[in-house]
Design a protein around this nucleic acid. Sequence first.
DNA 1: ATGAAAGCGCTAACAA
DNA 2: TTGTTAGCGCTTTCAT
Lengths: 343, 343
Amino acid sequence: MRNKRHSIKDIAKTLDVSPTTVSFVLNGKGKEKKISDEVINRVLTYTKSINYKPNMLARSLRTGRTKILVFMVEDISNHFFSKIARTIEDIAYEKGYRVLFCSNENEDKRSRDLLNLFYERQVDGFIIIPSTGIRDDIRELMKNDIPVVLFDRFFPDLDTHYVVIDNYDASRKATRHLIDNGYQNIAFVTTDVQQVQMLDRRRGYTDAVAQEGLQATVLEIPFGDTDSGSGRELMRDFFRNKELDAVYFSTNYLTRSGLEIIKEIDEKLIFQLGIVTFDDNELFRINTPTISAVAQPMEEIAQELMRIMLHLLKQKNSVEETMQVTLSAELIPRGSSLAKVNV
Amino acid sequence: MRNKRHSIKDIAKTLDVSPTTVSFVLNGKGKEKKISDEVINRVLTYTKSINYKPNMLARSLRTGRTKILVFMVEDISNHFFSKIARTIEDIAYEKGYRVLFCSNENEDKRSRDLLNLFYERQVDGFIIIPSTGIRDDIRELMKNDIPVVLFDRFFPDLDTHYVVIDNYDASRKATRHLIDNGYQNIAFVTTDVQQVQMLDRRRGYTDAVAQEGLQATVLEIPFGDTDSGSGRELMRDFFRNKELDAVYFSTNYLTRSGLEIIKEIDEKLIFQLGIVTFDDNELFRINTPTISAVAQPMEEIAQELMRIMLHLLKQKNSVEETMQVTLSAELIPRGSSLAKVNV
DNA sequence: ATGAAAGCGCTAACAA
DNA sequence: TTGTTAGCGCTTTCAT
């Protein structure tokens, strides 16, 4: 027989007080409600002794709040996402919220399933990196007045709260940095996903090279293949056959394979090519050569996200303008993009 | 004003039927309860038109089941864990369960917080790789008749359901494999965590070398430092200064750094050393040289876990003997442990 | 073939 | 200072 869990009613009966009293005491409202110290003590010691755990389902059903936030990204194991996740969790915890993390693997179906799952369980808010096809699901959430904040990217035709960085500007600066250091044949390695943040990074690059009359050379790796054999093959061919003196990677999961392949092709190649990547990583500081990177302000992103989320959570009235924040990313020049030495 | 979600009562009122009828229809019991086709249709079309989503909190409070399972591991981004997670999710989904994933980072506090969070939210069952210090929390769960299945490791002094592999045997065979191929100075690189699975792997190694009168050389990397600077430093010194002809890594997160360091020390070293690692990885097949590995039967582990979990879930009566499964792991010999060529 | 009503465990307005 | 009670949204037994 399943052991029945202790309920407030049980406790009240055992202690010969009313459920209300127990509830008040357990919620720390004992003093406020002027419950006698003696009763407070009896309740506290007894509940501790039986290791009472409240039924949050019941509480949430009653209060209408679960005190749960959902943080959904492409892949929670990615350093960039997990770093932000950690900061968010800390801030949320302080405010009495718990955070559930999940990865949608950039698949719409998975995103939708997760949104549904959590929506039905009445979570209080969503912080999301949306996959391309869930615009309508996001809108549906918003129509139901669920707090939603997007980040990393957004839907140009949907008026949502979001926190992003100025990808165009950052990308432009990164490309200019290579140009200024004497590189002339700069390749841009990216994925084929048609999302706003990727397109902005690409425009930043093409505009920067165009401005100097240089040629744009773009390699697109299919999204699913970025770390697989066929993606690697594409890069290998590309780096072998193109006359390049610099490479600029559009995202961190391309950089890892990219660097490996460059090393494989020729031991010395990595020292000759100018290299810059989007998204910084601790390893880039200890790599030989050290790798220049566009660093997103992760701490700040997380803080802005939670600032907006907490604001939305305390709003009664949902009629309000959307909060849209664009932060700027910083280029960290390192050894991999030093001024070009012409041989 | 927060948009009130649709409730069954609302729907009933709008359609001028009773909540009962709506509930029956929505739960697919329309036919069974002999609701007229006309009413069934009205309910179905209307609920679809307003995109009705049931309040699972209320349902769960009423039924006593959330249909949620929790899968808690050290680090869900680790290939071994995430592979198992995926299989578990698929099986669970078929049976109408959803799975929530979380990482405890091998910290007791985090484990405890997560167990509490989900216990209070009445999840139906836990599949856990326990961190060292949560024995009592696991026992507490079991005392409350919550289905718990452990894997990868267990507590020798706690009678739980679990699925593990025969680490001792696998480790012994891996070591013997190196010995049989002519290696004499085999190092064992492991972490300092004193958990049963690690100790078994270690004993497998020491017994195998002892049996041949060879010397055991063990390097222990502090758990937190396995992929950090200081851990790498330890390995670097170790590989540089010891007279080794083979290395056996006890777990996959050590292997990655280990291989990198071996390459760094000397380009050719990786071809000279015999190498075997615990936990297989797709990359090992394409690495040069290919890396020999002890492969855990991940599919089978996941299936056994879910077989036990589903069994427990349908039990009314909890008085029952524990289900303890030990599977065997398979050594996959590859290029990194070919018969030693004496120079 | 459909509806009324109780109750899951909790909170909180109101009563005493 | 403490208790009574209604009700959150749902399922399900029992009536009709």
